[in-house]
Amino acid sequence: MNAAHDSAVTQSREHAWKYFELHANQRIAVFNFFLVFSGALAAGIAATLQGSQRFALLGVGLGLTLGLVAFLFWKLDQRVSFLIKRAERALSDAEGAFPDPTLRLVQHEPSSTAEASKGLGPVHRLWTYGEVFRLMFAAMAVSGVVGTVLCWLRFTGHLDW
C-alpha cells in the first residue's frame, strides 16, 4: 500500500511537472514568434514611412496589423499564463510532502520574490515574465497605432520628409 501511494505521488508530481514544462516552453516559443513577427511588421512600417508617399497606405495596414497582432498575442499569453499558474499550484502542493523545506522551491517562490524585491522601486525590483511580456505587447501595440497615424498623415500629404 505504501509503495503504491509513493508511486502515485511520484507520478502525480511528474505529471504536474510535464504540464508546467509544456506550457512554460510554449509561452517562450509564442513570445519569440511574437518578437519576430512584430519586428518584421515594425520594419515594414518604417520602410513605408521612408519610401514613396504611394506606399504609405501599405504602412497604415501594417500598423493596424501590428496593433491586432499585439492584442492577439497578449490574449494567447494570458491563456498560457493561466495554465502555467495551475501547474505551479499543483507543483507547490506536491512539494508540501518534501521533508526538507529548502526543496520547496515552487511553494516558496512568491515569498522569496517579494523578499528579494522588498524596498526596491519599480525599475529595480524583480519583474515577472508576465510583466515584461505585457510591456512588450503594449509597446508594440502603441508602435502600431503611432505607425498607422504617421503613415496615414504621410499618405494624405500632411507629413512629408
Rank of each mutant, 00 (worst) to 15 (best):
P122S: 13
L62M: 14
D77F: 07
L105A: 12
T113S: 11
F33A: 14
S143I: 04
S38Y: 03
F137I: 00
I28Q: 14
G51P: 01
A141W: 12
M140V: 07
A47H: 04
R13M: 09
R86G: 10
E88T: 07
W74K: 13
W152Y: 13
V145Q: 00
W74S: 15
G63H: 00
L58E: 06
W152H: 06
E88D: 10
E115M: 10
L22D: 13
A47W: 08
S111H: 10
I45M: 05
T48C: 07
W161T: 12
F73P: 03
R125S: 06
L91W: 02
L58N: 08
R125E: 05
R154I: 05
D77T: 04
A3R: 10
S112I: 10
V123A: 15
V80C: 04
S143T: 13
S92E: 06
V142I: 15
A43Y: 04
A29S: 13
A87W: 00
W127N: 08
V69A: 15
F98W: 08
T128I: 02
R104L: 05
L150N: 02
A138V: 15
R125P: 00
A47D: 06
W161D: 10
V106P: 00
L150M: 14
T10P: 00
L35G: 08
S112C: 09
V123Q: 11
H124R: 14
A29Q: 10
E88V: 09
E14R: 13
F73K: 01
Q50Y: 12
F98D: 13
F71H: 15
L66N: 05
L66Y: 04
Q26D: 10
R104Y: 05
Q107F: 11
S92K: 02
G121W: 03
E109N: 09
M140I: 02
S112M: 12
H124C: 09
I28A: 13
F55T: 13
R154F: 00
V9P: 01
C151W: 00
S81E: 11
C151D: 07
G157S: 05
W17N: 13
V80S: 02
R54L: 12
A90W: 09
F20V: 04
S111F: 09
R79I: 12
K85P: 02
T102Q: 12
G147L: 03
P110V: 01
M140D: 11
G63F: 00
H5K: 12
I28N: 13
G157F: 05
S92T: 03
A16V: 01
K85R: 14
W161Y: 11
W152G: 11
